[in-house]
Design a protein around this nucleic acid. Structure first.
Ligand SMILES: [Mn+2]
Ligand SMILES: [Mn+2]
Ligand SMILES: [Zn+2]
Ligand SMILES: [Zn+2]
Lengths: 144, 144
DNA sequence: TTCCTTGTTGCAAACGTTCGCAACAAAGGA
DNA sequence: TCCTTTGTTGCGAACGTTTGCAACAAGGAA
């Protein structure tokens, strides 16, 4: 249940301006539910209006991330995904061989993250990040 | 104590050819001790011979990673680093705000990685990867 | 409503990285 | 030693993303 006007209000309260481009981008990513690439967001927005540029999409997504309204994460192989806080928090197991993504809950590793926080004073929250490795299929197939 | 000829032999045994470019790149990264970007490797090699191309550097580093002779890891902000197995295994705490990198030992979170392996059959080893978050300084400075 | 300030946009160039392709050369066999 | 095979290179184009800059327009003030 995304409330786009909440996101917009938050930006306005922080002194940012509300533009048609930002409204479109926020509506798309907030209603989508899953994570999307910048290019996907671009295409969905362009289907509604041609007045959009890929640089603006990246800048708006970055703005949302910087203001805690969305998260950005590395899906490996140079692919980056964005999602609003509707999606998460959780952890991605990204296979570095086949690229498959398994979503697991943060509770599975929260003890270690707490420990990192205690020992190193390093804040690993929000817990939307990726762990890269090898999925079962790819491990079994490995020849070396 | 890097033994370049070991790396070279390993490649040869896998059916790859030993070229002057590969010898140079391996010598640089194996003797360096720390992790380096592809561009850094390029510059060091170029200081010795001009016969090197950035595409070849990337291809060679990828080859080493694919054959388990080096690791590649995301330092955040789109920066990628490479290192031979002399460096590691360990974990990077990468601050998404200031980019600082803290190296911690794998034992700090190995319990969670074991758990992921058990529950999801996902291999997170070798343990040379990054955890993105906020360092103490950047957390204290945060305004929002 | 109109104006002014200044944050935002589109564009084009640049960034780091990957890819296709033709020329080249490492390695093994004759 | 030379030849043949085929893996590797350099180059240039392309990729996804970031950046500088001038034109534009959101939002507040008058
Ligand atoms: Mn996710
Ligand atoms: Mn390291
Ligand atoms: Zn896999
Ligand atoms: Zn920091």
């Amino acid at each position: 249940m995304p409330h786009c006007h909440t996101y917009l209000k938050r930006l306005r309260d922080h002194g940012y301006r509300i533009t048609p481009q930002r409204e479109m981008i926020i509506q798309i990513i907030a209603h989508c539910g899953r994570h999307m690439s910048a290019e996907e967001v671009m295409e969905k927005v362009r289907a509604k209006t041609s007045s959009i540029n890929i640089a603006t999409v990246y800048r708006t997504l970055d703005l949302l991330v910087e203001n805690g309204l969305a998260s950005r994460f590395d899906l490996g192989n140079g692919n980056t995904a964005y999602a609003t806080s509707e999606h998460g928090p959780h952890i991605h197991l990204v296979c570095k061989h086949c690229g498959s993504v398994t979503e697991i809950t943060e509770s599975d590793i929260s003890a270690s993250l707490d420990r990192i926080e205690d020992l190193y004073d390093f804040d690993c929250r929000p817990y939307h990040f990726s762990v890269h490795g090898l999925c079962r299929d790819c491990r079994d197939t490995r020849t070396d």
